[in-house]
């Protein structure tokens, strides 16, 4: 019984179906254990976790320099600058209550180093409708090496609670040929 002390000699190896099940379960766990690192390298879909410490004010200054030197237009809806980074170069996206700044225009098939950080609270970078999600922390420059593979306008939704205006925090990334 589970509710009384076990009889003497209870400590013994499993037998029969139980032994088989433990074996299958263990094999399955080992398979999963191998799959995750394997697909990290084979699938090349994951961030390596590249990140640097950065003071929010310094990051804001870098974003401003990036916008000034790469601005190509102004988004008619949000009045935010549309910025086109050099292919293969650095792109910056700044999160703060409650907007993403600036609007990025990227070229399909080109690789970018996308720097994301927050000036105030934690935010969530959620690229829709791709559904790709990253955590954005103040004090950390999160560098994602990305290559857009499909053209179109993508929305950047905030999916980490950041105060009363959280649900209004929507940005944009344009991917062009």
């Amino acid at each position: 019984m589970s509710i009384s002390p076990p009889p003497p000699g209870w400590f013994k190896a499993p037998t029969g179906g139980e032994r088989t099940w433990v074996g299958i379960a263990l094999l399955w766990c080992l398979l999963m254990f191998l799959m995750m690192p394997y697909w990290h390298f084979r699938g090349k879909q994951n961030s390596t976790g590249e990140a640097y410490r950065v003071a929010p004010a310094d990051f804001a200054a870098r974003v401003e320099r990036f916008v000034e030197s790469n601005k190509v237009a102004e988004d008619p809806q949000s009045k935010k600058p549309i910025v086109e980074p050099a292919p293969g170069g650095d792109a910056y996206l700044q999160a703060r209550m409650w907007d993403w700044y600036p609007v990025l225009r990227l070229k399909k098939g080109q690789e970018y180093r996308l720097h994301i950080s927050s000036l105030d609270l934690q935010h969530g970078f959620s690229l829709q409708p791709m559904n790709m999600n990253f955590q954005v922390l103040p004090g950390y420059d999160h560098v994602l090496t990305i290559t857009p593979t499909r053209t179109g306008d993508y929305r950047v939704v905030c999916n980490e609670f950041c105060g009363i205006g959280h649900h209004t925090m929507v940005g944009k990334i344009e991917v062009r040929d």
Binding site: G124, S126, Q128, P129, M130, N131, R155, V157, C158, N159, E160, F161, H166, H167, T168, M169, V170
Partner: peptide, 18 residues
């Protein structure tokens, strides 16, 4: 899996939900 965030009052505000 459609991308709707958790902890958000109005998921449709910018997401144009399917």
């Amino acid at each position: 899996s459609y991308g709707v965030p958790r902890r958000v009052w109005d998921a449709d505000a910018g997401a144009n939900l399917s």
